[in-house]
Measured scan of single mutants.
Amino acid sequence: TYYTVKSGDTANKIAAQYGVSVANLRSWNGISGDLIFVGQKLIVKKG
Rank of each mutant, 00 (worst) to 15 (best):
A23T: 10
A23G: 09
G33H: 08
N24Y: 07
V22D: 04
L25D: 00
T10Y: 03
T4Q: 08
N24H: 10
L35D: 15
D9M: 02
Q17Y: 13
L35A: 13
G47P: 15
K6A: 08
G8P: 02
G33C: 09
L25M: 04
V20K: 00
I31Q: 04
A15W: 03
S27M: 14
N29W: 04
N12M: 15
L25I: 09
V38M: 07
K46H: 12
K46Q: 14
N29G: 02
G19D: 08
Y3D: 00
G19F: 07
Q40V: 06
V44T: 05
Q40F: 05
I14C: 01
S7M: 14
V22P: 07
I14R: 00
K45D: 10
A23Y: 07
N12Y: 15
K13N: 10
I36W: 06
G47L: 13
A11C: 15
R26N: 08
G30T: 07
K13C: 11
V44N: 01
S21P: 08
R26W: 09
S27C: 14
I31S: 04
A23P: 06
K13Q: 11
V5K: 01
K45T: 11
S27G: 08
S7L: 14
Q17H: 11
S7R: 11
K13F: 09
K46C: 14
Q17V: 11
V20G: 02
T1W: 14
K6S: 07
T10D: 08
A15H: 02
A16K: 12
V38E: 10
G8K: 04
D9R: 00
I14D: 00
A11E: 09
T4F: 11
V22Q: 05
Y2T: 08
K13W: 12
Y2W: 14
A15N: 01
L35N: 14
N12L: 15
K45Y: 15
T1Y: 13
I31F: 14
G39D: 05
N12D: 15
A16V: 10
K41W: 07
Y3Q: 01
Y2M: 09
A16P: 02
V5M: 02
N12E: 15
I43M: 10
G39M: 04
Q17R: 13
R26M: 15
W28N: 02
N12I: 15
G8F: 05
G8C: 05
I14A: 00
I43G: 02
L25Y: 00
V20S: 03
I31K: 03
A16I: 11
I14Y: 01
Q40W: 05
K41S: 09
A15S: 07
K46M: 15
V22E: 09
K45W: 13
L25N: 00
I14W: 02
L42H: 00
D9L: 01
S21R: 05
T10M: 03
G33I: 10
G39P: 00
I14S: 00
K45C: 12
N29M: 03
A23L: 08
F37Y: 13
F37V: 11
L25Q: 00
G47Q: 13
G30F: 09
Q17S: 10
S7H: 13
I43L: 15
Y3N: 01
G8R: 04
D9P: 01
L35F: 13
G39Y: 04
S32D: 14
S7A: 15
D34G: 08
K41Y: 07
A11Y: 15
A15G: 04
K6F: 04
A15Y: 03
V20Y: 02
G19H: 09
I31T: 05
T1A: 11
V44K: 00
Y2D: 04
N24Q: 15
G33S: 09
Y2E: 07
T1G: 10
K46N: 12
A16D: 11
I43Y: 08
S32H: 13
S32A: 12
N12C: 15
I31P: 04
F37Q: 10
D34V: 07
S32Y: 11
D34M: 08
A16H: 11
N29T: 02
W28P: 01
K41P: 05
R26E: 15
K41E: 10
A23S: 10
